[in-house]
Structure formats: structure tokens, C-alpha cells
Design a protein around this nucleic acid. Structure first.
Lengths: 225, 225
DNA sequence: CTACATCTTTACAAAATCTTTATGCGCCAG
DNA sequence: CTGGCGCATAAAGATTTTGTAAAGATGTAG
């Protein structure tokens, strides 16, 4: 099973530690950054499924980090803050924050808000399982089945396939796919895509030489159907 | 753009009034229900764009109303509550609430959370499709259909057809078409156009020898209809 | 530390697409 | 009648894009 990945951006190590323990205990994979700059770099190099962002960072305002992230990152960002003033909250939400919690927060509530945010970001239409012919992608348990049998996928393969499944029928450009899976620092490595589309086809296509699910749109990208 | 419609389900008339004034002052259309039962009926009769639901209702637990709503309603539901206990919050979020605010809440924050929720829910449903008779050009999915069947086009063919579709009925000159598709460096290669218009006609016209969609305007250019 | 799985990179063959050339048709003016 | 012009079509050649295998690099668990 593939774990959802959460990036924590917070300068206070004890809080990071506390969050890490709680999140890992609930089946998430955790990545940590102590500064805004580091957080931006980490997310760009490998986009997590959700970001927990502290507003009070030493090097860069959390608001600035949020703004820069939202220029390309469209998964949930939950703000944590010692502040509890309205201007701050409104500004963060209007910049694109998914949610805002004031410290000290209750762990159970944070976990529930994380669950809720991840669920919503993965829901295309309220159904956690996307079915396309003989392929079944369960976004909650992160499992893929073909004709009812579990298909063993690596983490990257799953990320790619779930992205396809969530956009069934649409042509996804090389650029978009690379940005979503590998982060915005890899805009030209279309070879990655060829390799991973190749392995995916071997695993989910009846006949990989004549793909029925992952269709090549030459010069543009791929389309899943 | 039409006003977004918000349904308030709350048994306390003063709170409903306060919310109504604030929401209408911010350009929303407001519908009110004083009981859970009434809220369920109103939302079913005419689904609003967002629901504000008070957990402390007299006739029916707000949790129960939330659960029943979520069986079919998938737009944002924001919970308002005088309670501030964690179990309640976690339970509401896990049942599918979009957000949870404790009373007394700050109006600005509520408005920001409403804006944020509505923005996110609208992000998932935008499709620009141009339909011209039996031809359908989906600019978001980058797909072309004829009588409902997907037409396989190369990248250049698609670019040309979508340009035609966006300018339905207008005569587009050779010069303009070349500039848009190939750039400024090919001002005289009208032969390219003949070749690509030819392949497009083969793919989208009933009878390519008697084109009904891509019409030749001799000496000037082409027109799509 | 080792073994294993996974990701990245390289190289080359295969396929698809684009560009160019050649040829034929129909219309119109001289 | 005939030659020129713009257009349509086919097909050959050139170029770009894609698919695949496999080697090297990296990371991870025991």
C-alpha cells in the first residue's frame, strides 16, 4: 500500500517532531522542512499530497511561501499558526490556503481536517473508487485492481495512474504530468514519462503493444480512458 | 456571473438574520431554514451552492442532517456550532463536512472560508466545449468528437481545428492561419494549409469532396461552420 | 553490509508526424 | 483553345517523437 505524503514546514523542531509522530502513527509518510526556502525546494522536487505550513517562519513570511506554492501547487495546504487574528486568517484563506488552524491545536481535529482535505482533493465526484473498464483505482486505500486482481504498483506508478484516472478522458500534457508527479523542477524530462507509461502499460493493458487505456497523443501527452 | 446561493440551517432566528445580512451584503443569495427537516426539503427542492449548518438543531441532530445531505449533496457544507469539543468536530469532518467553525465566529473569517470553499468546489466543473453540428471540440480535454466518437487528430491538426472552432463562421485568411499555427516565419507556405485542411476534411467531413464544415474561400482563406 | 526494489539515465529501433515534391483538376482571361 | 493560377490529393523523404531494454545510481529494510 502506498502512503499519502505530507510535508511539514515549521521552524520549531519540537512541533515538527510531535506532528511527525502523530502523522506517521496514522499511516502518513512525513517529510520535514525547517525553513520556507527548504519547504519550497522539497515540494518542488517531489510534490507531497498535502502541506502543513507554519505562518511564523524565520526566513520568509509564511504568507509569501503560501503564495509561491500556489503558483503551481494545487493540492491541500493547511496553515498552522500561533496567531489567531482575523486578518491573518482571511488573508491566508484568500491566498489559497485549504484550512487554517490556530496553535495550540487539538491533534484529533488536525488529523480529521487532514483526512477531510485529502479526501476532497482526491474526490473527482464523491466516489473514492474510479472504474475504467477492467481497471479499478481505489483512491482511499491507494490500491489498483485489474479484473478484480490487485496490481502491484510502485509509488510513482500509482501516482501517475491515479492522476490519469482522476482525469479520465482528458489529454494530459507532458508538462502537466511532470509537474504533478515530479514537481515543477523537471519540465523537460519527458523520458521519465515514457519509461513509466511503459511499465504501467505492461501492468494494466491486455496487450501493451496496443494500449486501450493509456493512449499516446503524439507531441502533446497522454490520455487515459 | 449569477449570485451563489447559500442555504442557512439554524434554529436561532437572530443568528440567521445576522448571517443573512452579512451574506447578502457580500453578494450571495440567501435561503433560510429553521429546522433540519425544512433544510433537507429546501436543499432537495433547489440545491444551493453551499450550506451553512448549525449542529444544535431542535428536531434532528445536525450530524444526522449532515449525513443525510451527504448521501447526495456534494457541494460544500460548513458546520457552525456552539460546541467546541473535539469529538464533535472530528465526527462532523469525517461525515463529510467541508469545514467547522465554533460559535461565536468572526464574520470575516466565515466569509473567507465560504469564498474558499465555493472557489474549490467550482474548480472541478469547468468544460469549454464548442459544438458545430456533428463536430464537438472540447478545449479543456483537448478532444474532438464527431457524432460522439473520438476523432484521432495529430497535434497540428487539432491546433488548426480548434482555431477554426473558436472563430466559427468567420473567414480566416491564409496569412492569419499560418501565423497562428506555424508562427511568423512561414508567411508564404500556403501549401501547408492545403495539406492539413485536406487531412482534417478526411477526418471530420461526411463527404470530404463536398465539405460542409471547412469551406474554401478562394483567394482568401477558409471558413469553419 | 548486503540484497532488493525502485528510480534515473543512456542508447537505439520503431512509429508517427511534418515537410516537400509532383501531379491533376477546374476556372477564367487572353 | 490554351496557358496561368489557385486548389486538392497522393506519396516520397526528412524530422521529430515515442517505445523498449538495459545499465547505472540511489535508497531502504533487514
Amino acid at each position: 500500500m502506498n502512503k499519502a505524503e505530507i510535508l511539514i514546514i515549521d521552524d520549531e523542531a519540537p512541533i515538527r517532531k510531535l506532528l511527525q509522530i502523530n502523522l506517521e502513527g496514522n499511516g502518513y509518510k512525513v517529510v520535514q522542512a525547517g525553513t520556507g526556502q527548504e519547504g519550497l525546494m522539497l515540494s518542488a522536487a517531489h510534490p507531497p499530497d498535502l502541506i502543513l505550513l507554519d505562518i511564523g517562519l524565520p526566513d520568509k513570511s509564511g504568507h509569501q511561501v503560501l503564495k509561491e506554492l500556489r503558483e503551481w501547487y494545487n493540492k491541500p495546504i493547511i496553515i498552522l499558526s500561533v496567531q489567531n487574528n482575523e486578518t491573518d486568517i482571511v488573508s491566508a484563506l484568500d491566498t489559497g490556503a485549504t484550512d487554517y488552524l490556530s496553535k495550540p491545536f487539538r491533534t484529533g481535529e488536525l488529523l480529521a481536517r487532514i483526512r477531510s482535505a485529502i479526501k476532497r482533493s482526491q474526490n473527482t465526484e464523491n466516489n473514492a473508487v474510479i472504474i475504467c473498464g477492467d481497471i479499478e483505482v481505489d483512491l482511499v486505500s491507494r490500491l489498483v485492481k485489474r479484473n478484480g486482481d490487485i496490481v502491484k504498483l510502485t509509488s510513482t506508478e500509482y501516482n501517475l495512474l491515479s492522476l490519469f484516472a482522476k482525469n479520465e478522458g482528458k489529454v494530459l500534457t507532458h508538462q502537466y504530468l511532470l509537474k504533478e508527479i515530479w514537481g515543477y523542477t523537471y519540465p523537460t524530462e519527458t523520458q521519465y514519462l515514457r519509461v513509466f507509461v511503459g511499465t504501467l502499460r505492461k501492468k494494466i493493458e491486455e496487450n501493451p503493444n496496443n494500449p486501450q487505456h493509456i493512449i499516446t497523443e503524439s507531441g502533446v501527452g497522454y490520455r487515459f480512458q
